[in-house]
Nucleic acid binder design. Structure first.
Ligand code: MN
Ligand code: MN
Ligand code: ZN
Ligand code: ZN
Lengths: 153, 153
DNA sequence: TTAGTACTGAAAACGGTTTTCATTTGCCCG
DNA sequence: CGGGCAAATGAAAACCGTTTTCAGTACTAA
């Protein structure tokens, strides 16, 4: 995986390609110091609160696209229409247990699907290339907070 | 699971509730005879091509909402911003292998997540309530169609 | 019939994302 | 130093699936 800084001018890809532009660096900085998942808007407003000339929302989107392609960031889909992003170990990915009550999420340390790829390949002759997997429910704290009192929702 | 016909007037839920309205029946008819996943728009245009007074798109959305709640239909999210729907065995659900080339999908017969719920519960004290899981790749035909000739995409 | 409620649908609103396009940036080279 | 030029940027508009609004209609019970 070949990560280069912007204006490195390697005579390669066309526009919108895999350079770490100024904007992308700022986006990455925000993600670096967050353990939670952030939407494009989250990132954008974080930057507006701290940068003197923050990148526009469009640039944030474009940066995220590059960062995902570079394997430094993954995009996560909770099915609520708003994509979230987070840093990952380069080239890796993971899934989550998302609490429906407090919205916190546990980052799983191993992918449940990867270890099934072979059997899927064998059984269905299907070449797995990617997948979506997110698990929803209640985290330990919210279970407890729910049990004693009258169940809230 | 208590499925009743519209205007059955059980003195229960408020509006927007779990009745099988005229519109919902038509929607269900469309889904009954399709093996593929259908978007709301798909269903809507199917109905416009065959009904003399087809339900509006709004009604299609509302019907799908009810049908999902009734457990007769599941909504599936491929992460492309357009939700799809399909009939399921009442109260059940399943996942798919989606071919990125021909867009056909294999309906899996067992849920990979359900059998992991216990261990997740044990390891993370997380109460699983739901999940998203879809797998993308290449179906057998598309693999073959790809291998011999110059690889298309 | 009448009154009350659920259902319906056209149009507008919504909200996240993408596209457009004119401007700016900054490296390259003469 | 200047242009020259391609990449990067951002404001505004477009997009597009979905939801909301609200006024009209259909149905049912009394
Ligand atoms: Mn994570
Ligand atoms: Mn299916
Ligand atoms: Zn995975
Ligand atoms: Zn499942």
């Amino acid at each position: 995986m070949n990560v280069q800084s912007s204006h490195g001018h390697s005579h390669s890809k066309g526009p919108q390609s895999l350079r770490l532009t100024k904007g992308a660096k700022k986006v990455l900085e925000v993600l670096e110091r967050t353990d939670e998942l952030s939407s494009a808007q989250d990132i954008h407003s974080a930057l507006r609160n701290e940068e003197d000339s923050p990148p526009g929302l469009t640039t944030v989107y474009r940066s995220l696209e590059s960062l995902v392609q570079l394997g430094l960031v993954q995009s996560v889909d909770f099915g609520d229409g708003e994509r979230r992003y987070e840093m990952v170990k380069p080239g890796e990915h993971h899934h989550h247990l998302v609490c429906e009550k407090c919205r916190n999420s546990v980052h799983l340390d191993q992918c449940l699907v990867q270890q099934l790829e072979e059997s899927i390949q064998a059984k269905y002759k299907f070449e797995v290339r990617g997948h979506i997997l997110e698990i929803f429910g209640l985290c330990e704290q919210c279970q407890q907070a729910m049990a004693p009192a009258g169940k809230n929702q």
